[in-house]
Amino acid sequence: RALPCPAHVVFRYQAGREDELTITEGEWLEVIEEGDADEWVKARNQHGEVGFVPERYLNFPD
Results as ranks from 00 to 15, higher is better:
residue 21 L to V: 05
residue 17 R to F: 08
residue 36 D to A: 09
residue 20 E to V: 03
residue 20 E to P: 00
residue 15 A to K: 10
residue 60 F to L: 08
residue 50 V to H: 04
residue 2 A to H: 07
residue 21 L to T: 00
residue 33 E to V: 03
residue 31 V to E: 01
residue 49 E to A: 09
residue 51 G to K: 05
residue 8 H to D: 06
residue 43 A to Y: 01
residue 20 E to I: 02
residue 43 A to H: 03
residue 50 V to T: 10
residue 11 F to W: 11
residue 2 A to L: 13
residue 44 R to L: 06
residue 6 P to T: 08
residue 32 I to C: 04
residue 11 F to E: 15
residue 35 G to N: 07
residue 36 D to Q: 14
residue 2 A to D: 15
residue 7 A to H: 00
residue 25 E to G: 06
residue 36 D to V: 10
residue 22 T to W: 00
residue 2 A to P: 14
residue 55 E to P: 10
residue 41 V to K: 05
residue 47 H to T: 09
residue 5 C to R: 05
residue 18 E to N: 11
residue 56 R to C: 12
residue 20 E to H: 09
residue 25 E to R: 06
residue 36 D to C: 08
residue 57 Y to D: 09
residue 54 P to L: 12
residue 2 A to Y: 15
residue 56 R to M: 10
residue 11 F to V: 13
residue 24 T to F: 07
residue 47 H to M: 12
residue 48 G to W: 05
residue 24 T to N: 08
residue 50 V to Y: 09
residue 22 T to Y: 01
residue 51 G to E: 01
residue 35 G to W: 06
residue 53 V to H: 02
residue 31 V to L: 05
residue 39 E to H: 15
residue 17 R to W: 06
residue 23 I to F: 01
residue 28 W to E: 11
residue 35 G to M: 08
residue 50 V to K: 08
residue 33 E to S: 14
residue 43 A to P: 01
residue 49 E to K: 12
residue 52 F to K: 14
residue 20 E to R: 06
residue 7 A to M: 00
residue 38 D to F: 10
residue 19 D to Q: 14
residue 28 W to P: 10
residue 25 E to I: 06
residue 54 P to N: 15
residue 23 I to E: 01
residue 22 T to S: 14
residue 28 W to F: 15
residue 62 D to T: 13
residue 24 T to L: 11
residue 33 E to A: 11
residue 52 F to Y: 15
residue 48 G to M: 06
residue 23 I to P: 03
residue 14 Q to L: 08
residue 4 P to N: 08
residue 33 E to G: 14
residue 39 E to W: 07
residue 8 H to Q: 09
residue 40 W to M: 14
residue 45 N to L: 02
residue 21 L to F: 03
residue 25 E to L: 06
residue 18 E to M: 07
residue 45 N to P: 06
residue 12 R to C: 11
residue 57 Y to W: 06
residue 48 G to P: 03
residue 8 H to S: 04
residue 17 R to V: 07
residue 15 A to H: 01
residue 23 I to G: 03
residue 60 F to N: 04
residue 50 V to C: 08
residue 45 N to I: 08
residue 62 D to H: 13
residue 40 W to I: 09
residue 16 G to R: 11
residue 12 R to K: 15
residue 41 V to Y: 09
residue 62 D to G: 11
residue 13 Y to M: 03
residue 41 V to W: 08
residue 1 R to K: 06
residue 16 G to M: 13
residue 10 V to Q: 02
residue 12 R to W: 05
residue 55 E to V: 14
residue 45 N to A: 03
residue 34 E to F: 15
residue 4 P to A: 04
residue 50 V to D: 03
residue 58 L to W: 01
residue 41 V to Q: 00
residue 47 H to C: 11
residue 4 P to E: 06
residue 39 E to G: 14
residue 15 A to W: 03
residue 34 E to D: 05
residue 34 E to V: 13
residue 5 C to S: 04
residue 23 I to Y: 00
residue 14 Q to V: 09
residue 8 H to N: 05
residue 7 A to P: 01
residue 21 L to P: 00
residue 61 P to G: 14
residue 44 R to H: 02
residue 31 V to S: 02
residue 49 E to M: 08
residue 4 P to Y: 04
residue 11 F to I: 15
residue 33 E to Q: 14
residue 15 A to M: 01
residue 14 Q to K: 11
residue 23 I to K: 02
residue 15 A to N: 05
residue 9 V to C: 06
residue 42 K to D: 03
residue 42 K to T: 11
residue 42 K to P: 00
residue 44 R to W: 00
residue 22 T to Q: 03
residue 46 Q to K: 14
residue 59 N to Y: 12
residue 37 A to M: 13
residue 12 R to Q: 11
residue 4 P to G: 06
residue 40 W to H: 13
residue 2 A to N: 15
residue 12 R to V: 05
residue 17 R to C: 14
residue 39 E to R: 13
residue 42 K to C: 07
residue 8 H to L: 08
residue 51 G to P: 00
residue 30 E to Q: 12
residue 6 P to I: 14
residue 53 V to G: 03
residue 5 C to E: 03
residue 58 L to I: 10
residue 16 G to A: 13
residue 58 L to Q: 01
residue 4 P to W: 03
residue 14 Q to S: 10
residue 18 E to Q: 13
residue 59 N to W: 07
residue 44 R to M: 08
residue 9 V to Y: 03
residue 37 A to N: 11
residue 55 E to M: 14
residue 36 D to E: 14
residue 51 G to N: 00
residue 8 H to E: 08
residue 49 E to L: 09
residue 29 L to E: 04
residue 16 G to F: 09
residue 41 V to C: 12
residue 37 A to R: 15
residue 9 V to D: 02
residue 1 R to D: 06
residue 62 D to Q: 07
residue 50 V to A: 08
residue 44 R to D: 00
residue 28 W to C: 13
residue 53 V to E: 00
residue 14 Q to H: 11
residue 6 P to C: 10
residue 52 F to V: 10
residue 7 A to R: 03
residue 17 R to S: 12
residue 8 H to W: 12
residue 26 G to H: 05
residue 40 W to V: 10
residue 28 W to M: 12
residue 32 I to D: 02
residue 52 F to N: 09
residue 29 L to I: 13
residue 55 E to Y: 08
residue 2 A to C: 14
residue 19 D to C: 14
residue 24 T to P: 01
residue 10 V to G: 08
residue 56 R to F: 09
residue 10 V to D: 10
residue 27 E to L: 00
residue 26 G to D: 11
residue 23 I to Q: 00
residue 60 F to P: 04
residue 23 I to C: 07
residue 37 A to E: 15
residue 6 P to F: 06
residue 19 D to P: 05
residue 48 G to T: 00
residue 30 E to P: 02
residue 54 P to G: 06
residue 15 A to S: 09
residue 34 E to Y: 11
residue 58 L to Y: 01
residue 43 A to T: 05
residue 10 V to H: 09
residue 29 L to H: 03
residue 61 P to H: 07
residue 20 E to S: 05
residue 59 N to K: 13
residue 12 R to E: 15
